[in-house]
């Protein structure tokens, strides 16, 4: 649909929000058009290729984001994306992102954390974060396969002594032994990839209580 370009102000703050290679293009509506029913169209470009490509699922949309994960799934390539505002026969110029490099810029999500406790120990099983995939049936790619130096910062808080300490690990199972029985411990885990500064997302805090000391209960009987 052709329109008069430049008749509207451009969308603003257009960037990629990328977590585990799920790459969402997002922007703010053009300024000064409150209350106006604006729609948007999106295109993307693979650096080193020849043409801008349409994202058909994001043509004439009213939302201000567009999932370009499939189009930018080759994380070793670099990309640009752009969006324009449309209202009737008027449209804005394109608002364009900087060069987007998924390998460097994606945020590394936290691992899945499973805790089991007994009297004096807590075992922690970590499952590496997974790369975004198009279909649930596709086989998963762990981010460990992409970032061979992926590590985990595990911090554990003793709620009784109010002490916290941490440990940097690469393997996915660890056991904290010699803990205090009948005590609530809380665990937080962060994925970490040495190298370029990357945004990191810590896991949800999970707490588990060590069991009561069986020997003392036997004595009581």
């Amino acid at each position: 649909v052709s329109c008069v370009s430049g008749g509207l102000p451009k969308p603003t703050n257009i960037t990629f929000l990328s977590i585990n290679m799920k790459n969402i293009l997002q922007w703010n509506p053009p300024q000064g058009l409150q209350g106006v029913e604006v729609t948007y169209s999106v295109q993307y470009f693979i650096y080193g290729q020849k043409k801008w490509l349409n994202k058909s699922e994001c043509r004439d949309i009213s939302r201000t984001y567009c999932d370009l994960s499939a189009e930018t799934s080759d994380y070793e390539r670099q990309y640009y994306a752009k969006a324009k505002a449309i209202w009737g026969t008027n449209c804005s110029k394109w608002a364009e992102t900087g060069r987007f490099y998924p390998f460097l810029e994606t945020q590394i999500g936290p691992p899945e954390v499973a805790l089991t406790a007994d009297e004096k120990s807590i075992s922690i099983v970590l499952t590496a974060p997974k790369k975004w995939k198009k279909n649930p049936e596709e086989s998963s790619i762990s981010l460990e396969q992409i970032y061979s130096n992926l590590k985990y910062n595990v911090s554990i808080h003793n709620t009784k002594s109010n002490r916290t300490w941490s440990q940097c690990v690469t393997n996915q199972t660890l056991v904290f032994g010699w803990l205090e029985p009948d005590t609530l411990y809380c665990v937080l885990v962060e994925s970490f990839v040495p190298g370029p500064p990357r945004l990191v997302q810590p896991s949800e805090k999970q707490c588990v209580s060590t069991l009561k000391d069986q020997t003392s209960t036997l004595k009581v009987k």
Partner: peptide
């Protein structure tokens, strides 16, 4: 990395030949 990240946007914005 920190040095390049500090100038990435400025530097790459000057490169208009995105097809190469």
């Amino acid at each position: 990395w920190e040095a390049f990240q500090a100038m990435k946007d400025i530097v790459q914005a000057q490169d208009n030949i995105t097809s190469v």
